[in-house]
Each structure stands twice: as C-alpha cells, then as structure tokens.
Design a protein around this nucleic acid. Structure first.
Length: 285
DNA sequence: CAACATCGGTCCCGTGGCAC
DNA sequence: GTGCCACGGGACCGATGTTG
C-alpha cells in the first residue's frame, strides 16, 4: 500500500483489509513498540525495518481517522505536469477533480472529514469557474455547505508574491446545505499587496450569498461578488466559436484585397500558418 | 558589480486537428 | 456541428542566474 507513498502522499486511502480498520491499527501500534524496544537491544538492521513499519502504521492510522477540522494550503499541480503514476491514480480515484492535484486533494479531504466536519483550504481559484471542474463544483454545492468564499486574486502568498495565478480561500463543511445556507463572500483580486488583502479579509466586509444562487449560476460557477443582475449575456447573444469573427467569409479579408482600407477595415492579427520569424499579420477585418 | 535574461505551483486566446 | 486537446505567445513581477 505504501510503495507509492512518495508520489501519492496523503491521497492514499488505507481502506479495505485489516489495515483499513482504525481499531485494529490501534492494536498493532503497542505490539510494534514492544518489538522495536526488543530489536534495538539486538540487531540494528532489524530495528530499521521495525522503525519503517512503525512509520507506516502511524501514517495509516492518521489517514484512517475522520477529522472535525482540516485546514491547509493544498499542493497545486496541473494534470499536465504530474507524473503518469500520479495522474493515473487521480484520474481513477478522483475523476471529477482530476484536472488539478489541488482539487483532488479537496476531494480527498472531503473523505477524511467526519460527518459535519469542516475544511478550510487555500487553493487555485480556477476551479470556481472553469469548465473542467463543473461536476466537482456541482457535487460540492449539492452535498456540502459552503461557509466562506474568498477570491484572493493574484500574488496572494507573502513569500511568492511574484506568482500571478489567482488563489482562493474556501471554507465548507461536510453536511448537506439547508435551503437558507449563506456563504460569507469577498473578492480581494484588485488588491496586490498581501498585507492589504489580509487587512481587508480581517475587516470582514463580506457579501452574504445564498448557496442556492451559486448552485443555480450557469455551470454552478462560484462567485465571490453579488452579481448586480441576474441577466446573462447568453440571453442576448450567442458565441458560435470562441472569440473570433464567427463569419470569416463575410468579415475577414487579406490586406492585399483592397488598395485603401478606409475607415471600414482594421488590421487583424491572427495565428501564423507555421512557425516563422514573422507571420499572422496578413488579414483585415 | 551592474545590467540583462530567465523563470515560475497560471490563465487566456485563436487556431487546427481529431473523434464522435 | 460540437467538444476536446495541443500549441505558442502575452500578461503578471521579483528572485535568481548569467554575462560583460
């Protein structure tokens, strides 16, 4: 079970078999302590093995418990940067959360939480909104109660404030939400100084957003700001293919098709056909 | 020693390729 | 037609490494 511990860490679930039983693990521990004391006096090589075994029992005991409160800065690592052993495991065990190690860790922590147990995490902010985490968000909003949503914005770590990625602080508990469940929500994304972020978060100028609203947002996106209106752009227009003209045959021409562009046409930079020192600048729109 | 270059626990965008 | 993926490039900006 622990052969892959250096890669999987606390993602390991010691369930099933004798080791999965927390009470049996408790029985093993005193026996190992006795054995350890005995072999220390005898052969040192055996003592090393006994120490390793003791370490594994300790780890299995910790990972088998259920916790009332877990608070941590989970590790972040996108799927593309994970070793295949890690990404395979996460893909198999945490399907909905597989896009990032951080969300897989959140899923793991939900399993470690006792009934009504609380989880406080610092994680990337992207899982609040990106499509790859839609199912993960929906499950969380349906099965858990969201207490705090804090969009910390970029440069949220004091010792890594060069880091531009947006970070979020979330607190939720492992209990089905009441229909009246409210989340304390705040966005600090406009503030780049960590001291300022901290002061504002402590000042407690939070919005109260019903969890029901978060769940009913398109794709169950979690937002830290109270939307000024329930009107969505999608009700007024459609985007057919990302951000582009949507109708190149009508709107896009090559620069050499007109002698004078006039006021009507503007330069339109696009991706080049192939890698070249210079390219992608032959269109107008 | 100063100036310059590179990098990072990222994200977004437009495009093309591919599978369904 | 749609969704997914890969790719390159630009944006953030201070620490660290490299060069002259």
């Amino acid at each position: 079970m622990f052969a892959q511990a250096p890669i999987l860490g606390s993602l390991i679930e010691p369930t099933g078999g004798d080791l999965g039983d927390y009470w049996r693990l408790g029985n093993i521990e005193p026996l190992l302590s006795k054995l350890l004391a005995k072999v220390r006096r005898g052969e040192p090589e055996m003592a090393m093995d006994a120490i390793a075994a003791r370490g594994m029992v300790d780890a299995a005991t910790i990972l088998s418990r259920r916790y009332t409160l877990q608070a941590t800065n989970v590790p972040f690592l996108g799927r593309g940067k994970q070793t295949s052993a890690l990404s395979d495991f996460i893909g198999r065990v945490y399907e909905e959360a597989k896009a990032d190690l951080a969300t897989a860790m959140i899923a793991r922590m939900r399993k470690l939480a006792s009934e009504c147990g609380s989880i406080a995490i610092v994680s990337p902010q992207n899982w609040y909104v990106l499509d790859g985490y839609r199912t993960f968000r929906k499950q969380l909003l349906e099965e858990g109660s969201l207490h705090v949503v804090c969009d910390l914005g970029p440069a949220a770590f004091r010792d890594m404030n060069w880091w531009a990625a947006r970070t979020a602080l979330s607190v939720f508990s492992n209990v089905k939400p009441e229909s009246t469940q409210l989340s304390l929500s705040i966005t600090l994304k406009e503030h780049k100084d960590t001291d300022e972020k901290e002061a504002l978060a402590r000042a407690g100028n939070f919005n109260l957003i019903p969890q029901r609203e978060q769940r009913d947002n398109p794709d169950s996106r979690i937002v830290a700001e109270r939307l000024s209106s329930n009107d969505y752009l999608v009700r007024h227009c459609r985007s057919r293919q990302g951000i582009k003209t949507g109708d190149d045959a009508r709107y896009r021409r090559n620069i050499w098709e007109f002698q004078n562009w006039g006021e009507l046409w503007r330069k339109f930079q696009s991706s080049p056909d192939s890698t070249a020192p210079f390219g992608g600048c032959s269109d107008i729109v």
